[in-house]
Design a binder for these strands. Structure first.
Lengths: 407, 407
DNA sequence: TGTATTTGTTGCCCTTGGAGACAAATATCT
DNA sequence: AGATATTTGTCTCCAAGGGCAACAAATACA
């Protein structure tokens, strides 16, 4: 009912403190392991020196941040202590995929402390997946130090997830429909569990710690084995939509004469732009998909131009053309400053950047200097771990007081 | 640089008061001329009775709101006074269009106090338009009472407007490119002037006072004489994008085999779905476009099925099919709760609602109960006046203290 | 070595919202 | 009609939080 972000709740004296604590913690969190000096926090928040001191002290007493002497002393004046997140509060990130379930222990600041992987199959039922995940989480929990405490679990689901309660509405890979994965996992582990779409969490990670750091409007497009997912940040906030299903850019129409998609429409982006035909043309298996990028580049650099390489180039150009159409629609709709490409879309783009860039010219204002930039994702394979952890941390970041009383 | 909406600034004691004042004023503003009781404000904000009393008193002392006895006494208990906006603070709304420039004097709460219209031609230069507008605004200013004061001017521009400074980057109707319309008008009138895209302001109006009242995620699609514009609200906030060009849904691809659009691409929504062919088939002129809706309905209700009416039906179905594709893409991207159709798109939809609704079925989750609703716009011809005024009021609504000192 | 600069630290003040007691105004029940 | 319950305005006092100014500390630079 009150989902509107235009503030309706007033601010009391207590929520004032809470918001300021959250602001400081978020700033420190976003600065990652490098941390940021107390004077920087003063400048960025606009708060008084004494206030920042008090806020940092409270966060420190709760064990969330720690102060240290600055390593390099550059400017004149009394050096300001560096405030950085501790690794006492940790989250577990989970990403169930076709072949395996990946997990990680992640600390504040986006640092991956430990990884774990369990094999899975495509015909896994939701309750089986919960079982597998729960035991894997318990393995990770054993690695926790005595001082560390678990904030919760974040799950990056390849499918549609209802934000409200984490219900997995649709996960095509596993054939799940309306599976309460989140609730089951939560009751099995007795920990708070939250879930969201994988690409939505991808853009969260990339926008906080990756290529989109500090950028308020960006679109993330990820090409995976079985489709294309999208995540959007606008005005500095993740775009979830009414229920959390926003960002399904894989179902943008790119070809009226295209193949019918599993969604029922024809010529969707993800029916026209696929990894499988590229791998096939290159003679690579699914497991060798890491080599896709270099193989494509090799095919494009080949001067002689064999029959096979020209076939590859044609397919790449074809796919890039369709990708361009979808990206153009996204730009016209969202006016982002940055398009981040992940998965095989990054490889596709790298093979012939000019093709996509030119394709983006066919839109209003394209000629002006205010055009968007297309870049590959910066975060590597940890992106979903970081994004899922970000989700798990979100409550803590919004209200550091709610957790762990001061000692 | 700091365009991100994730709070970076801390909250001091002064901004605390400012935010609470703004929250209360916004709530009263959104409740329109009906106003809302003080007890309602207490409940909705979560603030204390005494605090609300103080805040309302301050707003009243600034002349922005006034209290009055409740008209109907429904429930038990001491009756709570009704707080409603006054019409002392007013804004001027401006909408330059092909044939005329429309203006209005608008008060808080979205009430249109006076209207004005001056003839215009399509070949109007920007400076000529500024001249015309400025004199028209001066006419409206004379209607101001002695107690009223002008907040500023808001302009709804049929084209791309840079949010930052109101520069009109592109207005195809007039052939304007990078015209500083806003700055010129501001210096000519010596008043604050802000500008934005017309459909963006349309969704603001419709989302605040119209069909989307209280809904945090909605898309507004408007069909005009010369194209289709779109405006988006997500998470309760208008979606502007990096520079203000978001919402250009008229350039979504709907037909790979379509006509080339002025944007350079082929088969855009606005090349396939147009008002002109409908009017032509119905034998209506541009001036008679108000009758389009009833004429279409008549053609659809005709039982016998003349040659002409079946042609009309075919064209309507064709256009609705393409509209459905664009709407589907928007839904997949934004997951709105509501699609609001304005202009001739509302007429088109009304002629055969089932066609569009069925077309939306071809998307993930369409079968579930969580599907979107499609509705016609509620606000009539005043929509852009209200939206533009909303823009002009936005600074006041965000910080009621900055204006007019307490007497 | 002295000076300018920046920033942490401390004590005090001001503003703001909250809580509670009391009064006022209404509906409802007897 | 009168008593009672309920809701809400009003008033006074209080506590908490941030700002400010003075001082001290720590650095760069001349």
């Amino acid at each position: 009912m009150d989902s509107s972000k235009t503030r309706v709740r007033g601010i009391g004296n207590d929520s004032l403190r809470r918001e300021n604590l959250a602001t400081v913690l978020r700033l420190v969190h976003r600065s990652g392991s490098a941390g940021s000096s107390r004077s920087t926090l003063t400048a960025r928040t606009g708060l008084n020196r004494s206030t920042i001191a008090a806020l940092v002290a409270e966060l420190a007493s709760r064990g969330l941040v720690a102060e240290s002497d600055p390593a390099i002393r550059s400017s004149v004046g009394r050096p300001s202590p560096i405030v950085a997140v501790t690794q006492k509060a940790v989250a577990v990130a989970v990403n169930p995929e076709i072949d395996s379930i990946r997990l990680a222990l992640v600390g504040l600041g986006g640092s991956v402390l430990a990884r774990h992987r369990v094999a899975a199959t495509a015909d896994l039922s939701a309750s089986q997946a919960v079982e597998l995940t729960a035991t894997a989480v318990r393995v990770l929990l054993q690695k926790l130090g005595p001082e560390q405490w678990m904030v919760g679990v974040g799950v990056a689901v390849p499918g549609l997830v209802r934000t409200e309660d984490g219900l997995v509405r649709l996960a095509p890979h596993f054939g799940w429909v309306d599976e309460p994965f989140t609730a089951l996992l939560s009751s099995s582990l007795d920990l708070p569990v939250s879930a969201a779409n994988d690409a939505t969490l991808g853009v969260l990670a990339e926008g906080t710690f990756g290529a989109g750091r500090g950028i308020g409007d960006l679109v993330y497009l990820n090409g995976g084995a079985s489709g294309i997912g999208g995540g959007i940040i606008t005005g500095g906030l993740p775009l979830n939509g009414a229920a959390g299903y926003a960002g399904e850019l894989g179902h943008t129409l790119v070809n009226s004469n295209g193949v019918t998609c599993h969604c029922g429409a024809a010529g969707c982006l993800e029916t026209e732009v696929r990894r499988a035909p590229l791998l096939e043309l290159l003679g690579l298996t699914d497991e060798e998909s890491d080599e896709l990028g270099s193989a494509l580049l090799a095919a494009f650099e080949e001067v002689s131009g064999s029959q096979r390489s020209s076939e590859i180039r044609a397919e790449v150009e074809r796919q890039l053309g369709y990708l361009g159409i979808a990206v153009r629609t996204a730009i016209n709709t969202l006016n982002p400053r940055l398009i981040v490409l992940g998965g095989f879309l990054a490889d596709l783009y790298a093979a012939d950047p000019g093709k996509l860039n030119n394709s983006l010219a066919a839109r209003p204002l394209a000629a002006s200097g205010e055009s968007v930039q297309v870049v590959p994702a910066e975060l590597g394979s940890d992106i979903l771990m970081v994004g899922a952890a970000e989700l798990a941390f979100s409550e803590l970041l919004a209200d550091p007081v709610k957790f762990q009383d001061a000692s």
